[in-house]
């Protein structure tokens, strides 16, 4: 399993909180494994919950119609990188 950065760990904690992933610790999420389609088995409502939490905590607004959103949501690492690019401020 790939190493997680501190920022990825914070994001993993947020995801476990908003999705009530009780049987999973943030550290159990592999940052390079798919979040959807297998992987954690998340669905479109989960994607919506994550998007709202990211909007609230980081003021980053995701849109499904953007070509790269599928890519951004593919893994925890991609999502973390996208948020950091958009905010420029979030420390690694």
């Amino acid at each position: 399993m790939a190493e997680m950065t501190d920022f990825e760990m914070r994001l993993a904690t947020l995801i476990c909180e908003v999705l009530n992933l009780e049987d999973m610790a943030p550290a159990d999420i592999d940052p390079e494994q798919p979040l959807f389609d297998g992987g954690l088995g998340l669905d479109s409502i989960d994607a919506l919950e994550i998007a709202v939490a990211v909007a609230q905590d980081y003021d980053v607004h995701l849109k499904a119609e953007d070509e790269q959103t599928r890519e951004i949501f593919a893994t925890l690492r991609n999502l973390a990188n996208h948020i950091r690019q958009e905010t420029d401020a979030a420390p690694a």
Binding site: A47, L48, A51, H61, L62, K63, A64, E65
Partner: peptide, 12 residues
């Protein structure tokens, strides 16, 4: 008929 998955899409 476009995407309406996220709040930003719904606003669009």
């Amino acid at each position: 008929t476009g995407n309406t998955l996220f709040p930003g899409d719904i606003r669009n």
